[in-house]
Write a protein that binds this DNA or RNA. Structure first.
Lengths: 209, 209
DNA sequence: CTACCACTTGACCGATCAGTCAAGTGGACC
DNA sequence: GGTCCACTTGACTGATCGGTCAAGTGGTAG
């Protein structure tokens, strides 16, 4: 009974991603993932040599999806401040969807997995570090464009500011996961981010829409 | 062979804290904790009704230690900017000690545990949320004092700024854990925090020491 | 001296874990 | 029509999981 190519494999990745994101790596068993997809464990190990390899593959899937989304959001054709506004909107939407589907605020999947496994499996730590580095470089390019447009002082330390933005966003996402409450992210995230960047939201938001 | 009162109990808590902080809750077994303390599992379950209860107790221990430390750092007798400087110094020291002892950057123990267990055990999520709330209130009081001393604009949204500071710090700590690298925290954390607060470090640091 | 009790021990439990394997099954290609 | 092979199945393994329990052990209080 050969199915459509890779159908089982993709369903395993999708389900694993949801279960691990919602709960945690060690809290989700291979049996549980297989049961959710209605597949026997032998099939699982036909596609993946180990549970750890599955985790890496789910991260790979997340990464490529994220790249498409962020390439769009941070397109140079968009005003730089609008990019930050859009990335917050995207995060809110993503978190609300995950909450609706999985019943819990999920936060940043890379951070959750990374925090749990970085000390056990260096490969995971390295992978997550690369992803974080890429995100920071999106922020850096937008900050450079803000300087070019005289919307923030040209004395701004772009690299430092990008680190601040990244840590702030990921910190808020994880806090929301723990509180199981999207309140701050929905209501204050955009204002806080603009404050952090050093522009007032009201001044510019009208130009953007 | 009754030992000094609570000696075993306290050693279990101390060891569990280290192992769980270094690795993760689900990655550390009760057997492993017992073996580290050289105690049999029966003794463990004499003191703790379950593994989850132990986790709560380790958090309790962390919390009371942290309260003493933060009450000192954020003492109103200290200039507010010096409080922030001191909290960063404390974080650096704490992280370096943990790294030296445990062989890996450990980050924020509450965040690690909370991120892993919040979706499984609401009690953990609530406990961690309370701790985070307290930390933010330390930052808020210091920000109010900064306004009082005209060191930041009196238009500053203190509550929002405190959230920014908290998320930034915790985000950096978790990133350092994943990268297993204290570089940024050691070299740039203080400057980034001062930038985030809205004061230049050079301008004020001489007044503080 | 004795009785009590906090504490310790080691053997034990059923459940679950990640991972294995030999025996199919059926679509695709020659 | 036959062969091949990706895929599936279900039964299996040994290790480990959190947790239990009855039988000590020894300090202490009366």
């Amino acid at each position: 009974m050969a199915r459509a190519p890779n159908e089982t494999r993709e369903k395993l990745i999708k389900t694993a991603r949801e279960l691990i994101w919602r709960n945690s790596y060690n809290a989700v068993s291979v049996d549980e993932i297989c049961a959710s997809v209605d597949v026997k464990k032998g099939s699982f190990y036909h596609f993946f040599p180990s549970k750890a390899h599955l985790a890496l593959e789910t991260m790979e899937a997340c990464t490529s999806e994220m790249k498409n989304k962020y390439d769009d959001i941070f397109s140079p054709t968009r005003p730089p401040l609008a990019r930050f506004e859009m990335v917050v909107d995207f995060l809110i939407t993503q978190q609300k969807e995950a909450f609706a589907e999985l019943g819990h605020v999920c936060g940043c999947p890379f951070m959750t997995l990374g925090s749990e496994l970085a000390a056990q499996d260096p490969a995971i730590g390295q992978k997550v570090s690369e992803i974080f580095k890429k995100k920071i470089s999106y922020y850096e390019s937008a900050l450079h464009d803000l300087i070019r447009r005289d919307e923030i002082p040209n004395t701004t330390d772009v690299s430092l500011k990008a680190e601040e933005i990244f840590a702030f966003i990921v910190g808020q996402l994880m806090t929301a996961r723990i509180k199981n409450d999207l309140g701050f992210i929905e209501k204050e995230m955009k204002r806080a981010l603009f404050d952090l960047i050093g522009v007032s939201k009201n001044k510019n938001s009208d130009l953007i829409d």
